[in-house]
Simulated scan of single mutants.
Amino acid sequence: MNENFHSGHFCCEQCNKALSGQSYILKEEKPFCVACYDNCFANECAECNQKIGHDSKDLIFKSKHYHETCFEARYTCSMCKASLADKAFGNWDGQLCCLQCYEKNLAKNCQACGELIKPGMKRLGFQGKEWHDKCFRCKVCDEHIGGGIFVPKEDNIYCSSCYEETFGTKCAGCGKIISTGGLQYKNEPWHRECFGCAECGKSLYNTRFTVRDDKRLCADCFGERYARKCSECKQPIVGQGGTKYVCFEQRNWHNKCFNCKRCQVSLVNECFVTEEDIICPNCAQG
Rank of each mutant, 00 (worst) to 15 (best):
G181F: 02
S161N: 10
L183S: 05
Q95H: 12
P119Y: 03
G125A: 09
C141I: 03
S161V: 11
G125T: 05
E103V: 10
Q184P: 05
Q184D: 13
C171G: 05
A107R: 04
K134V: 10
C174L: 03
L96T: 06
Q95L: 15
L99D: 13
F167I: 01
V140I: 15
I157L: 06
A107C: 07
G182L: 01
Q111R: 10
Q127D: 11
K176H: 12
D133N: 14
N109C: 14
K170R: 08
S161F: 07
T180C: 08
C141P: 04
A172P: 05
K139C: 05
G148W: 07
I117G: 06
K134Y: 13
K108S: 11
F136T: 00
R123I: 09
C113T: 08
Q100N: 15
G128M: 03
S161Q: 10
E164M: 08
E130K: 11
L99A: 12
K153F: 12
W131P: 01
N109E: 15
K134W: 10
L124E: 00
C98P: 01
S160I: 04
C138K: 02
C171P: 08
D133M: 11
S179H: 06
G175S: 04
I177T: 05
G182R: 01
S179Y: 02
G146R: 05
D155M: 10
C113G: 08
P119S: 07
C101I: 06
C110Y: 09
I145S: 03
G120R: 10
C141Y: 06
H132A: 04
W92H: 15
S179P: 02
G147R: 09
T180P: 08
Q111L: 08
K134T: 11
S160E: 12
I157G: 02
Q100D: 15
G147F: 03
G94M: 04
A112E: 15
I178Y: 01
C162W: 04
S179K: 10
Q184W: 12
C135S: 04
H144G: 09
R123K: 15
V151K: 14
Q100A: 15
C101E: 05
F126H: 14
G182Y: 00
C110H: 03
D133G: 11
H132Q: 06
G114R: 10
C113A: 04
C141S: 08
C162R: 03
G120Q: 10
K129M: 09
Y163G: 00
L96I: 11
G146E: 01
M121F: 12
G125N: 07
P119R: 05
G181K: 00
C138W: 02
K122A: 12
Y163S: 01
K153E: 10
N105L: 14
C141E: 02
D93V: 04
V140D: 13
Y185F: 12
T180E: 13
C162M: 04
L99C: 13
I178V: 08
T169D: 08
K139M: 08
